[in-house]
């Protein structure tokens, strides 16, 4: 087979990889903010939930989390009379998001706590509530600081999507494996896949850079 004939199936896989990356990064970011802010909470209950989530998902492997959601959860559900079978895409997005969210939470917490004490004092002197201080003062300054780390996590997430091929989702890695079994043309196929992942990573990096500039645009005001 000529290498151009691999393109179509690989592109199909790449499209699923893009979707998985996009959905799990967005959901992961939401989880990261919830858990990262939760960890700075004064409420012990909220803090305990956030810490537990972060530690469990950072302390176990993504592959095991994925298998647990896809294979173990339905059986657990059966035991208590609930249908917890997840479609492979949902299990994949969920596992990726939960994983990336736990790492992102530490980035969020760190950036909030790195906001200068002076800023919190100014907010208090203006009689802001804790919530107003978080949303109006701390987060707008912390978010631009989070962006480089978020960029790394998003690229990491893109590469981690390859694991979902193990629950038979037809992503880029899965399509590559199928083609290779069929044609035995490992060198061509995996070289192409290498470049395709690299190309997607470049796009993710560029998008995160644009986002970084957007959320920190006040820092570059001149004149």
């Amino acid at each position: 087979m000529h290498w151009t004939e691999y393109l179509n199936p690989l592109m199909q896989g790449a499209w699923l990889t893009v979707q998985l990356t996009l959905y799990s990064t967005i959901l992961g970011a939401a989880l990261a903010f919830a858990a990262g802010i939760g960890k700075t909470s004064r409420n012990h209950g909220i803090k305990a939930v956030a810490v537990t989530y972060i530690e469990v998902f950072r302390g176990t492997s993504l592959l095991v989390q994925l298998f647990w959601l896809y294979f173990a959860l339905p059986i657990l559900g059966q035991g208590i009379g609930l249908d917890l079978r997840l479609p492979p895409v949902v299990a994949g997005v969920l596992a990726l998001a939960l994983n990336i969210g736990a790492y992102g939470a530490e980035v969020v917490r760190g950036a909030i706590q790195a906001v200068s004490k002076d800023q919190f004092e100014a907010a208090k002197a203006l009689n802001f509530t804790r919530r107003q201080t978080l949303w109006s003062v701390a987060l707008p300054q912390a978010i631009p600081e989070m962006m480089p780390s978020f960029g790394n996590l998003a690229v990491q997430n893109l590469k981690d999507t390859a694991l979902v091929s193990l629950i038979s989702l037809g992503d880029l890695a899965f399509r590559a494996e199928q083609l290779r079994n069929f044609t035995q043309d490992s060198t061509t196929i995996y070289t192409m896949v290498l470049f395709m992942y690299f190309g997607m990573a470049l796009v993710v990096t560029a998008m995160m850079k644009m986002l970084e500039r957007y959320v920190g645009r006040w820092r570059s005001a001149r004149g």
């Binding site: 002076d118 800023q119 100014a122 002197a125 109006s136 003062v137 707008p140 300054q141 006040w218 820092r219």
Partner: peptide, 12 residues
């Protein structure tokens, strides 16, 4: 109301 030595304006 308070005025701070380091101003403490909100930079954003």
């Amino acid at each position: 109301g308070m005025v701070f030595q380091q101003f403490n304006l909100f930079p954003h």
